[in-house]
Amino acid sequence: MTPASPRAIVIGASAGALEALSVILPSLPHDFRSPIIIVVHIPPDKRSVLAELFRAKCKIQVIEVEDKEPLRPATAYFAPPDYHLLIEDRETLGLTCEEPVLFSRPSIDVMFESAADIYGRDVTAVLLTGANQDGAKGLLAIAEAGGEVILQDPGGAFAAAMPEAGLKLCPDATVMSLDGISEHLRRIG
């Protein structure tokens, strides 16, 4: 077993996610230390191609989560369609079929809140482009637990509603461009 990573990165995105993540994920080096746990809103009835798509472009590992997936460094984990993704502990991810939250399953709030519970101050949360309010409450939970919270600059986002909702609940969040976020993540590893 690899030792549990001391830190994690969590990312939420909706409309425009593919383009935004295409700036961030391929820029991360193969020896990146943290696991990166990602919720993107996807239709429930389709097989998601996100993991396959990014696997081809990234230096880090990319997988779609199955229940009780172990967390490893330098790996991006995508929530599968029609399940909520939760962080069980610093070594394990879990899935559930509980009711959608804000019409979303997977829900960014649900994953972010579990990240706040498990990682406390040892997590960096990034809320990207999107056309709804999901993620804002979760971001607040992470901020309250002492974690770092970052928002994509709504001005440069494909859909501004989600980062704007995040900023409303977390006015102290750091606002960055996609390139700024990539650079920051590479620095903190």
């Binding site: 939760l86 962080i87 069980e88 502990d89 879990g94 559930t96 579990s114 519970d117 498990i118």
Partner: peptide, 9 residues
């Protein structure tokens, strides 16, 4: 039971 989900519920 898996704690994350129990806690939410």
């Amino acid at each position: 039971y898996a704690m994350g989900s129990i806690k939410r519920r």
